[in-house]
Simulated assay, not measured.
Amino acid sequence: MPDLALRRIQTPRQTVGILSVIGGDSNGTRYSLWECWALELPWEENRNRKSCIPPEPGENAVFRFERHESPRFGRCIWVKDVPGRSEILIHAGNYVSDTAGCILVGDTPTDLNGDGLTDVTRSQETLDELIGRAGESGSLQVTWEDQTADPADLSLHGVG
Score class of each variant (00 low, 15 high):
1 M>S: 15
3 D>I: 07
4 L>C: 05
4 L>G: 09
6 L>R: 09
6 L>T: 10
6 L>M: 06
8 R>V: 08
11 T>W: 02
11 T>L: 07
13 R>V: 09
13 R>G: 07
14 Q>K: 05
17 G>K: 05
21 V>C: 06
22 I>D: 01
25 D>Y: 04
29 T>D: 08
30 R>F: 00
34 W>T: 08
35 E>Q: 14
37 W>P: 02
37 W>K: 00
39 L>E: 06
41 L>G: 05
42 P>A: 04
44 E>V: 13
44 E>S: 13
46 N>H: 05
48 N>F: 09
48 N>S: 13
53 I>G: 05
57 P>S: 07
65 F>K: 09
68 H>A: 09
71 P>C: 02
71 P>T: 13
76 C>H: 10
78 W>S: 14
79 V>Y: 05
80 K>F: 00
82 V>Q: 02
85 R>V: 07
85 R>E: 01
88 I>Y: 09
89 L>Q: 04
90 I>V: 15
91 H>I: 04
91 H>M: 01
93 G>P: 09
94 N>L: 06
98 D>Y: 00
100 A>S: 11
101 G>E: 01
102 C>H: 03
102 C>Q: 01
102 C>E: 04
102 C>W: 01
105 V>Y: 02
108 T>V: 08
110 T>D: 02
112 L>I: 12
113 N>R: 07
116 G>H: 04
118 T>E: 04
123 S>K: 11
124 Q>D: 11
124 Q>L: 14
126 T>H: 02
127 L>R: 10
127 L>P: 06
130 L>T: 05
133 R>K: 15
133 R>G: 09
136 E>H: 10
138 G>L: 10
140 L>F: 00
141 Q>E: 15
146 D>V: 11
147 Q>E: 13
151 P>D: 10
152 A>Q: 07
152 A>N: 07
